[in-house]
Amino acid sequence: MKKYWHKNLQYLFGLLFIWFVVSFMMGIVWAEDLNAYRIGNFPLGFWIAQQGSIYAFVLIIFVYVYLMNKLDKEHGVEEK
């Protein structure tokens, strides 16, 4: 049981770290520097701030759901 919770916390910290780096660092703090690069016709920092970060948020949630459903099964704590 303890193991289940610790694994959950590990997933949480990992994913929240990605969440923080993508939105706050790449989308705000580093955005101006990233604008030197381009993705298609978009300056990269601008694209991350107004598009990419939102896609990343969706992805993070679905990765978490997938990991947790697997973890629930492994430890037999899923709902019947």
């Binding site: 701030a49 939102i54 948020f57 949630i61």
Partner: peptide
């Protein structure tokens, strides 16, 4: 560019909600 604060601010909270 600065409008991103609303775009990210009003979507990023769902990550916190879900996790």
């Amino acid at each position: 560019f600065d409008g991103a604060q609303y775009l990210m601010g009003w979507t990023g909270g769902y990550v916190l909600l879900a996790l």
